[in-house]
Design a protein around this nucleic acid. Structure first.
Lengths: 178, 178
DNA sequence: TCCTAAGCGGAATGTAGGCTTCCGGTTCTA
DNA sequence: TAGAACCGGAAGCCTACATTCCGCTTAGGA
């Protein structure tokens, strides 16, 4: 693969990510091409159809989430803190719409890895008594999707509330204050 | 207006409500007509363009919400209980997508009435110390929209959590248990 | 019962937005 | 410097809708 071709491939992937985040999984191919500063022809040569592009995107994204999760685990003192940090970071980055758009559809094996890793962490947090135990990974994944679909005011206002709801200690803390 | 014409008008409104709930504000006119068991021509004679139909829908819906709110106030013992019941009922009925789709767009005066009424109730609940005071009507309306957009598992799992988060007493209750 | 204005259905038309292909020109790189 | 790999984007095709139009049907008053 020629150097310029690889460069274009990367630009396309980046543009696609933005476009999909904004307009959903059926963002126009032409829009993606324009944003990448590339002709549609180039886009189609590299990704013969939309699903190929989407797959590539999903895989890339899930890997980033995995990295982000690892970083959270390394940086935070406990399992619950790591979960919390991961959720906040993911929602903040605001690219979650991709995850939402692609949720069940693509890159199932990569997604699975993420889910397993997160599940492990959730169980730890719950075992440590730091997190409500009537909520599971699947709930968390859905939560991410929802917040991802409503960028802006919704996450800002409700994410902390939601996280408080998931945390056990905060309940005690709040009550102690009252 | 002839009797059959009125009958059709009602059928159209009902079909439109379903269609908009499922497919958003730009649900195909033809779909609406088919569901109403009516030709497109009939639809267009009654509602010259989409916006007229949407307005009628929004007005009808907001009035229902107002009724529902009044009923909740009459049936429940306190302001917070009424707010809670209203939210649950609205999300359950699952037609909230209409509200979401139409949110800022239409029937502003009717919507305003609902917001005022709900605001009053929220303030009461907060004054009585039953509800978190860092959340307002606007937040509540947005919350409704979000849950409305994600029918199914999301509301089922998270609405109670969210409501717990909004309630003050539940915090104390939970802590007491722990 | 009969008449006719009010209604009705749905084919036909017009339009917009997108997908994909194709090919003449351009750019790497061996 | 040859030529294989690449590029851009115009062109054609297609799907999905909105909206109009008109010949047929029907409610409901005289």
């Amino acid at each position: 693969m020629r150097a310029d071709a690889r460069r274009n491939r990367d630009k396309i992937l980046e543009a696609a990510r933005d476009a999909v985040a904004e307009r959903g999984a059926d963002a126009p191919m032409e829009l993606i091409a324009r944003r990448a500063g590339v002709g549609v022809g180039t886009l189609y040569r590299r990704f013969p159809d939309r699903s190929v592009l989407l797959d590539a995107l999903a895989e890339q994204y899930v890997h980033e989430l995995l990295d982000s999760l690892d970083r959270a685990v390394a940086a935070e003192p406990g399992a619950w803190a790591a979960v919390r940090a991961f959720v906040v970071h993911t929602v903040d980055k605001g690219r979650g719409a991709i995850a939402a758009a692609l949720a069940g559809t693509t890159a199932p094996q990569a997604r699975q890895a993420l889910v397993l890793r997160l599940d492990e962490l959730v169980r730890q947090a719950q075992a440590a008594g730091a997190m409500r135990s009537d909520v599971g990974v699947d709930d968390l994944m859905e939560l991410l999707s929802v917040f991802a679909c409503h960028p802006g005011v919704i996450p800002d206002r409700f994410l902390p509330l939601m996280l408080d709801g998931l945390e056990k200690r905060s309940l005690e803390k709040a009550a102690r204050k009252a």
